[in-house]
Design a protein around this nucleic acid. Sequence first.
DNA 1: AAAAGTTTGTCAAGGATTTAACAATCAAGT
DNA 2: ACTTGATTGTTAAATCCTTGACAAACTTTT
Lengths: 209, 209
Amino acid sequence: MDKQISQAVIRRLPRYYRYLGELLDDGVERISSNDLSKRMHVTASQIRQDLNNFGGFGQQGYGYNVAYLHDEIGKILGVNDTHNVIVIGAGNLGQAIAGYVKFERVGFKIIGLFDVNPELKGKMVRDLPVKMLDELPDFIKNNDVEIAALTLPKSNAKATALKLVSLGVHAIWNFAHVDLDDIPDVVIENVHLSDSLMQLSYNITQHKK
Amino acid sequence: MDKQISQAVIRRLPRYYRYLGELLDDGVERISSNDLSKRMHVTASQIRQDLNNFGGFGQQGYGYNVAYLHDEIGKILGVNDTHNVIVIGAGNLGQAIAGYVKFERVGFKIIGLFDVNPELKGKMVRDLPVKMLDELPDFIKNNDVEIAALTLPKSNAKATALKLVSLGVHAIWNFAHVDLDDIPDVVIENVHLSDSLMQLSYNITQHKK
DNA sequence: AAAAGTTTGTCAAGGATTTAACAATCAAGT
DNA sequence: ACTTGATTGTTAAATCCTTGACAAACTTTT
């Protein structure tokens, strides 16, 4: 049985992954927790502690092999495999997410874009046509959909999420400004942009004092 | 001198604000920490503890007045005033942010949209024309710009941020996939979408076990 | 007006996370 | 091969955050 890893640690992993990727691009072969800590502005102790939740990836007197550690963190995060994503809601944000090439580089492939608005039907966003929501059941049946990004008004979010789960999608990347807890058997990751903006606003006010 | 409030608390304030707004819309006049805790799936103790960082907003035997508390949290977050925002980078994401009406309801007004690409010059996004980056200094001089949203490739993000700060913008809402720490005298709020997606990916993997 | 019931604000305990410290281990130089 | 220096993995201390508990203060009922 695996020990439960805290979300505090998980939140930091993508950042390690990013820095290691950059080091890799720069041709750096090895790095010590101390050097990495200086670049990332965190403590070396935290880095070692975090990594050791998953195993001993380093070596005394040497440090960490960049390529190896990068790959291991990739495995932990599950970004070495491909994940198929559909986007529900083809408004501005939905189109932006659907058109975001970057995600594919880390294993996330957008394979469908859906909306209720008939005016959008067939509209091309990058190489994807907007499909109508009633095509969803068939689409999910015929494609291996792992994640649904919800970029729709909050009034429809809960019902759509329930529908998705009943169709077999068990991971939701939620941009709607509503909480989707109390849906069983689904993994939710929220991106609440307004909340983020309000935090910024708070910190501005504090900063001025 | 104010006691420093932890970011853990600040992160929860927008959520309280949202729930209180909904209660307000529903015509609910008062609520106890206990009732609110059930709706929000947090402990009542946490709610009381969080609020008491900022003052005693409730009353024994009565609870909290919804309208009053909503307004007070609004003040704390600084969303009762208007904040002018410019968006740097008029790609998909930049256009989505610039076109997002919702933000205005919580006091954030998008007043400018900038890019380097001459092909986009003058293109209308909602009621805003895309301006070129070299118009930025004048624009900032003539408008009260408080926040800049950075929706541009990471290669340009750092330099642009430095420029913005030198022009007098001291708050950055950063969507670029890069860290902008070590810039002095600026408040940064990061929205790293890839990171969020990777967290989701990790949690999917865990869920399957 | 008193009694019963409710609910806050706050203190203290408990739990979680972060940092510091250092023995154990390996690498590199002599 | 031995010594020196570097760096990890891990333990323990320190800090931070969350929860439980309850007196004090208010509301409502009788």
